[in-house]
Design a binder for these strands. Structure first.
Length: 364
DNA sequence: GCGGAGATGGACC
DNA sequence: CTAACGGGTCCATCTCCGC
């Protein structure tokens, strides 16, 4: 393989995935606005929208919106509770198909993945587009799901391309087309650049991708930090060398909404049983030991805080999670008397492989 | 100066 | 009338502290 061959990267995005999956198993939903929700259980419609089909989107419903708001926009919509176990099952079958077409593969989320097909396409974007077509066909035939695919020279461009034509679309951006492609996009279209960053850039008079591409590096560094500043500029130039690779999870967390707000550590500790149980089971299932345990708190005003503690000996134990979390909850509320928790959660991180103890020989 | 630990904030789905 | 608001993960940065 020549050292500088362009990569052929595909970004595969399953269309309105949760809602499409529901349409699939309940055909009577076809043609209706379908809104898949995460109900918090507080009141009948407290919670947020996880996904909406195109019929619902036409009415102005979109992911992240409060359910109560969505109900006003789509009074005749079908509101379903998310069944993530089911979506995970469907997703893993689709991911297995995608893996077949990959030199390298990286699942990004339940409904998204990158495929590096450089070698099997021998660096050809025509081949890359054909491969995208085959993938779409396979996924439709075997899972009856549509997806949108972007083909480009790196993950950044592939990801942006997959968003151009959807649902059921395919967009190719060759290396030669990158510049023109980026000219048609806004700064906020660059992956990893959200509202806060857009606002900060606008403050400095940087409003377009080409302005960002030619911005002063030192100035960007001052605004966003040593590494992040320059990386913003690279994004604007369409440069992204990050490899397609499967990454191990670095942390697991469980977070829930309380039935009633509280400032009582005791209440949170008793509610922690189930979450600690799930996290301990997860660490055993995934065969990892953890050393860091965190508590997560979201206030009645939706501010979030985290406190964590690292223990000496890696563990997989539920009671260890409870023990440390209890200490952290108590300490936090002693120091923050006015904090009112609306949601809370637990997190485990700082993983190591569970391996047998080192033999005495290795210490000598 | 470097590392780990811990806190915080931004971002994305 | 307004505001309404999930759960999960990653990553960078900053500060502090011991070495």
């Amino acid at each position: 393989m020549p050292i500088s061959m362009n990569r052929v990267i595909l970004h595969v995005d399953l269309d309105y995935f949760y809602a499409q999956t529901e349409e699939l198993r309940k055909p009577e939903l076809r043609g209706k606005p379908v809104i898949v929700c995460m109900f918090s259980g507080r009141t009948e419609s407290s919670g947020a929208v996880a996904a909406a089909n195109y019929k619902a989107r036409e009415l102005g419903v979109h992911a992240g919106m409060p359910i109560a708001f969505a109900k006003k926009k789509a009074p005749n919509g079908v509101f379903l509770a998310a069944d993530r176990e089911h979506y995970n099952e469907v997703s893993s079958r689709v991911m297995d198909i995608l893996r077949e077409y990959s030199d390298k593969f990286e699942q990004v989320s339940v409904d998204e993945a990158f495929v590096d097909a450089t070698e099997r396409c021998r660096g050809s974007y025509i081949e890359g587009s054909k491969l995208a077509g085959e993938i779409k066909k396979r996924v439709l035939e075997e899972e009856k799901l549509t997806c949108s695919i972007g083909v480009g020279p790196n993950k950044l461009i592939a990801k942006m391309a997959s968003g151009v034509k959807k649902p059921d679309g395919m967009t190719l951006v060759t290396p030669g087309e990158v510049k023109a492609f980026l000219r048609s996009k806004r700064i906020s279209d660059l992956h990893g650049i959200g509202d806060k960053t857009v606002e900060a850039l606008a403050q400095k008079g940087i409003k377009t991708i080409s302005e960002l591409a030619s911005a002063d590096i030192a100035q960007l560094q001052e605004m966003f930090g040593e590494n992040r500043g320059p990386s913003l500029r690279e994004k604007a130039l369409g440069i992204d060398e990050s490899p397609v690779e499967e990454r191990e999870k670095q942390q697991y967390s469980r977070i829930v909404t309380l039935k009633e707000d509280t400032s009582e550590p005791k209440k949170l500790i008793s509610e922690s049983e189930k979450l600690a149980d799930e996290l301990a089971a997860k660490s055993i299932e995934k065969k990892v030991m953890f050393k860091t345990i965190s508590i997560l708190l979201i206030s009645d005003k939706l501010e979030s805080v985290a406190r964590s503690r690292t223990i000496e000996v890696p563990t997989q134990s539920k009671s260890e999670i409870i023990k440390v979390a209890s200490e952290l909850f108590k300490e936090f509320f002693e120091q923050n008397l006015k904090f009112v928790a609306r949601r809370f959660g637990l997190r485990i991180s700082n993983f190591s492989e569970p391996k047998k103890q080192k033999s005495i020989l290795e210490f000598s």
